[in-house]
Simulated scan of single mutants.
Amino acid sequence: MSVLNSSLELLGHRVDLRYALLHYLVWVIPTVGFIGTVIGIALAMSLIDPSAAGQPLGEIARALGVSFYTTLVALAESAILVLFLHLVQAQEELAVNRAGHYTLVNLINRLYAG
């Protein structure tokens, strides 16, 4: 019985390790979006000329809009990817659990009963 538990634990860890890079990529997408926002705000701020009387507010507003859309797109993409990542990982872990249960019922219990 402990051999089965150890094998299932190893398979569970293997599943987690296979998703490590994907978890990082899903995490880094909103980070890149926030970096884009900071760059966009910095560029918009560079358009401001304190000595000029009539500021080009349209250009500044467009630059800020692009920077905020960068974050919006990254957050939406990350939310979708996290959902799919969790659904796929849950299915793989469920398959491992079903295989363990099948082995327990059809092999281990019969060995102990026989």
Rank of each mutant, 00 (worst) to 15 (best):
E93Q: 12
P50S: 04
A76N: 09
T70A: 03
L87Y: 11
V96K: 02
A79V: 12
G54F: 11
R110D: 13
H101S: 06
L72H: 10
Y69P: 01
L83W: 12
G58H: 08
A52L: 10
S51T: 15
L87H: 04
I60T: 04
Y69R: 11
T103V: 05
G65H: 07
A95H: 00
E77Y: 07
F68T: 00
Q89Y: 06
A95T: 03
A76T: 00
L47A: 02
E59R: 14
E92N: 02
L57T: 09
V82N: 08
A53W: 11
L94G: 10
S46L: 05
S67G: 13
A90D: 05
I108L: 07
A61G: 12
I60W: 13
E77S: 12
N109T: 15
L111M: 06
A76F: 07
Q55A: 09
S78W: 08
T71F: 03
S67W: 04
E77D: 08
G54A: 11
D49Y: 04
A95D: 09
Q55I: 09
A63Y: 15
H86P: 08
T103D: 01
A52F: 14
A95I: 07
E77L: 09
A63L: 14
V105N: 07
A53T: 02
V66D: 12
A53I: 10
R110L: 03
Y102L: 00
I48F: 06
Q89N: 14
L72V: 06
I60D: 11
G100E: 00
L47Q: 10
R62I: 12
Q89R: 10
V66H: 12
S46I: 01
T103R: 09
E59V: 11
T70R: 07
A99Y: 01
S51D: 12
S78K: 00
A74P: 03
P56K: 05
A61C: 15
V105P: 01
G54L: 13
L85H: 05
T71V: 05
V96C: 07
Q91R: 13
D49V: 00
I80E: 15
I80H: 11
R62Y: 14
F68I: 09
L81F: 01
A79D: 08
A63E: 15
I48E: 10
A63P: 06
R98D: 00
H101W: 05
L94A: 01
V66T: 10
A90N: 01
I80W: 04
N109R: 15
H86S: 11
P50C: 11
L75Y: 00
L47T: 03
A52R: 15
V88T: 08
Q89T: 15
Q91D: 07
P56C: 09
V96L: 00
E92R: 00
A63T: 06
I48N: 09
E92C: 02
G54Q: 08
L87N: 12
L104Y: 15
A79T: 10
Q91H: 12
F68S: 08
T70N: 06
T70S: 02
V88C: 12
R110G: 01
V73W: 05
R62P: 08
I48R: 08
Y69M: 11
L94I: 03
V73A: 10
E93K: 09
G58A: 08
L83F: 15
A74L: 12
E77G: 15
S51P: 11
A90T: 06
V96N: 02
T103K: 08
Q55P: 09
H86Y: 09
F84I: 08
Q89F: 02
E93G: 03
I108T: 04
P50N: 01
L111V: 12
N97K: 05
N106I: 04
L72M: 14
